[in-house]
Design a protein around this nucleic acid. Structure first.
Length: 359
DNA sequence: AAGTCGGGGCA
DNA sequence: TGCCCAGACTT
């Protein structure tokens, strides 16, 4: 695309965004008429691979609980994970916590505004560094996420292979930001407009081309190929996982929970005692052995139900049992059902507890 | 370059 | 059901 074309696109997108951009909590500007770096960083970590509608359910409570870098840096990781519960990709919460510590100790508590420093923070890659730098500090940095890549490929009539899409999109985004800056437009506004267009108009399926501010400059639309761009990502089949959980409630209504290991799925999250197998469901005896210490006590387990839970790479089948008089200790602790809201628990395990009438 | 990490919404 | 989402990190 020519430079003059880029300038026209940048102008049209920026103007459109001012009129049609959604009001989102992390876009609200303070008295400085600029976005807060910390709040922007929090939102960008939450938004990695996660839709706006899902982040809305957690963002405000999170920044209310951890209003600034110092508060988050001094928090316990478990309480950060608890505030992240339900959002998924829990490693991001640990990364954000680590980033706050690094900012507190190495940047005097101020979120850095250059992509080099931002990129050294845990959990901050090329996209997030560019996003914080441009959106919060109006630095002339490009960003490419799924939305931007799709918008730029369609606009230019490209259908890049998965291997080439990244490099091509970054070059195109970079050229566009430079053109915008050259005529005095805000790089932050341009980047946000690109993402907003992808999220609300130039959607993966059923794009609303009639509402697009750059439809007359879109090569894909001219040829009617917008639905064929971008190429679908190669998908690997979901592997199966079988989980059997025991929800044990004592005489005072407290629930027994245990913590998962530090690696793999739902790392460090808490759960009702759960046994996992890749190939087949655990047997009742195996479960009784795991929870009660005696395979012969399988009769004490009462089946409460089951459900299917999906993640990107797994198809998890849960079977839920209830039991009485299960011993605590050995890492297992009793918690009142009211206290569970302050403990890191995945949505899958919330379903397990709900199925047994807890929560 | 490929695998892993959640979870929900939508055609 | 399959696909996608304001990606990053490890191997």
């Amino acid at each position: 695309m020519s430079d003059s074309g880029d300038v026209a696109v940048a102008r049209a997108l920026t103007t459109w965004f001012r009129r049609h951009g959604r009001v989102l909590p992390w876009r609200v500007r303070g008295r400085s008429s600029r976005r807060d770096g910390y709040r922007t960083l929090v939102s960008e970590l939450m938004l990695q691979q996660t839709q706006v509608s899902r982040v809305l359910a957690h963002y405000e409570a999170f920044v209310a609980r951890f209003p600034d870098v110092r508060t988050l840096a001094h928090a316990r990781e478990q309480s950060v994970l608890a505030a992240w519960s339900g959002l998924g990709y829990y490693r991001r919460a640990k990364h954000l916590h680590g980033a706050a510590k690094m900012i507190h100790h190495e940047h005097q508590g101020r979120v850095p505004c250059d992509v080099a420093s931002l990129g050294r923070l845990p959990g901050v890659g090329a996209y997030t560094a560019g996003a914080v730098a441009s959106l919060a500090f109006d630095r002339p940095e490009a960003i490419v996420d799924g939305n931007v890549s799709r918008v730029l490929q369609r606009l230019n009539g490209r259908r890049e292979s998965a291997a080439d899409a990244g490099a091509w999109a970054w070059a195109a985004a970079d050229a566009l930001v430079r053109s915008a800056c050259a005529v005095g437009l805000s790089p932050g506004d341009l980047n946000e407009a690109l993402m907003e267009l992808g999220a609300t108009v130039c959607t993966p399926r059923g794009p609303r081309c009639g509402a697009c501010p750059v439809r007359d400059r879109c090569v894909a639309r001219a040829s009617g190929s917008q639905e064929d761009i971008p190429l679908p990502k190669p998908t690997s089949p979901r592997r199966r996982l079988h989980c059997a959980s025991v929800v044990a409630v004592d005489g005072r209504g407290r629930v027994l929970i245990e913590q998962r290991g530090p690696d793999g799925l739902w790392a460090d999250m808490w759960q009702a005692p759960t046994l996992e197998r890749l190939d087949r469901p655990p047997t009742r005896s195996e479960l009784a052995e795991y929870v009660l210490g005696r395979a012969a006590d399988a009769g004490m387990l009462r089946r409460a139900g089951g459900f299917e839970h999906q993640t990107t790479h797994r198809r998890v089948r849960f079977v839920v049992y209830t039991a009485r008089s299960v011993p605590a200790g050995d890492g297992r602790v009793l918690k009142s059902s009211r206290a569970l809201s302050a403990i890191p628990i995945s949505n899958a395990q919330r379903k397990v507890l709900a199925m047994a009438g807890v929560g």
